[in-house]
């Protein structure tokens, strides 16, 4: 019995197994995947993002290439065959564009606007919140008064007035969405940073002679990220819905960059005459996107909430 291969069982018997290193991320991952509803949300969301990314490869038509759109195909019912020979499973809109293709291309714009505005708003809001908490005094008072002022007015109203003043376009709507979102991040991050600032590791970093910027962004900021992640999910869903609302009202994105909101608005005029699908399907896509994000967001909030930790 000299060269017995070492089996896992022997190892386990020999010494207590070394526990796999537990990082905050693995703990988060475990907590997240325990919830079936959240996983369903993640799967749904992944499918939606994949469909949007692959849109040019898996759609029968590029809806914004005017050569491939035939006015003769307008307002076909779901399941009809278009002049080009493909079946339009979701029907066509008022100018003959295939709705399935239109929705996937629209999703790209909606998702892009939602994420980009969320990312920019989170960066600005975090910077403002950290600076306010670290600087204190008058700087803090002024910054937080601006935040209060902004949060006391409803987002839809601010965004509406902004896009009214700026005009249509992707860049303008992203700007408007950033303006309505950043204050949420600033307020939350400031609250967290105020707590973190009093902890010993900050004092340690300061006594090492590190610069203020380094203490704030390398030491305090990483410890304020958990609530930011929660707000990112909630706010991205809001931003996507808000963009769709503005586009629906005709003040958001132009017809040349049709997001889901523009598609729904286009269908509105045909709805009273019974062509329900033009508004219905883009709305359903919008709904599924928002629901999938919210399902994930609910779970992320629960997992990251220190008060609920066992």
């Amino acid at each position: 019995m000299t060269d017995t291969p070492i089996s896992p069982a022997m190892l386990a018997g020999a010494a207590t197994p070394v526990p796999k290193e537990e990082t905050p991320f693995t703990r988060f991952r475990k907590g997240f995947f325990e919830d079936k509803v959240a996983v369903a949300g993640l799967i749904l969301f992944s499918i939606i993002v994949a469909l949007a990314l692959l849109a040019p490869l898996i759609t029968p038509q590029n809806p914004y290439d005017l050569r491939s759109v035939d006015l003769m195909d307008s307002r076909l019912k779901p399941g009809s065959v278009a002049g080009e020979g493909f079946t339009t499973w979701l029907g066509t809109d008022g100018v003959g564009r295939d709705l399935y293709s239109g929705i996937l291309y629209g999703l790209r714009i909606s998702l892009m606007v939602g994420f980009l505005s969320g990312l920019i708003a989170a960066s600005i809001g975090m910077a403002v919140g950290l600076i306010a908490a670290y600087a204190g005094g008058r700087v803090e008072t002024i910054l937080m008064r601006i935040v209060d002022l902004q949060l006391s007015l409803p987002a839809v109203l601010i965004a509406l007035i902004l896009v009214a003043a700026l005009g249509k376009g992707v860049d303008k709507i992203i700007f408007a969405l950033v303006v309505v979102q950043w204050a949420y991040y600033a307020r939350t991050v400031r609250g967290n940073a105020l707590v973190e600032r009093r902890k010993e590791y900050v004092e340690a970093a300061q006594s090492l002679g590190l610069s203020n910027a380094r203490v704030v962004f390398r030491h305090i900021m990483p410890n304020c990220l958990a609530p930011v992640i929660v707000i990112v999910t909630v706010q991205t869903a809001h931003a996507i819905a808000l963009e769709a609302t503005l586009s629906f009202l005709g003040v958001g994105l132009p017809q040349t960059e049709p997001s889901l909101g523009v598609l729904i608005a286009n269908g509105f005029q045909y709805m009273l005459s019974g062509s329900y699908w033009i508004s219905f399907f883009p709305g359903l896509a919008l709904l599924l996107t928002i629901v999938s994000i919210n399902l994930m967001g609910d779970r992320i909030r629960d997992v990251l909430n220190p008060r609920l930790e066992k």
Partner: peptide, 28 residues
């Protein structure tokens, strides 16, 4: 949760479609 996720304007369209056009109960 669905109520939080539903885009208001789209629900409005669906309400019109269902109650006014399909059922004809209420004016649009």
């Amino acid at each position: 949760i669905l109520g939080f996720s539903l885009p208001t304007f789209w629900v409005g369209l669906m309400l019109i479609m269902f109650f006014s056009i399909m059922l004809g109960w209420l004016p649009a």
